[in-house]
Amino acid sequence: MLIIPCPWCGPRAEQEFHFAGEPKARPVPAEQVSDQTWAHYLYHRSNEKGAHRELWSHAHGCGRWFVMERDTHTHQILSTKAPA
């Protein structure tokens, strides 16, 4: 079970958090992008082994979303920060 350093609340247990996937830049204007670009935004993921950028929310805490860099192999947490 991870200890996750929320950028606002400090280190808290994993159960307070919610993982929400890799942050992906939304292609805009969406209507004008190709099916392929849209599919990549919706479904394709880098799914990195090693340092992996991911979006989390401190769901049972401050309720804020943040970007965390985590090693998906060792589960070491490399950084957390507010979403860009």
């Binding site: 919610h18 979006l55 769901a59 804020r64 979303w65 979403p83």
Partner: peptide, 13 residues
């Protein structure tokens, strides 16, 4: 609620 917060905090902050 999660959806609202997510869109607000990440896409339309």
């Amino acid at each position: 609620l999660d959806q609202l917060e997510l869109w607000h905090q990440t896409e339309y902050p």
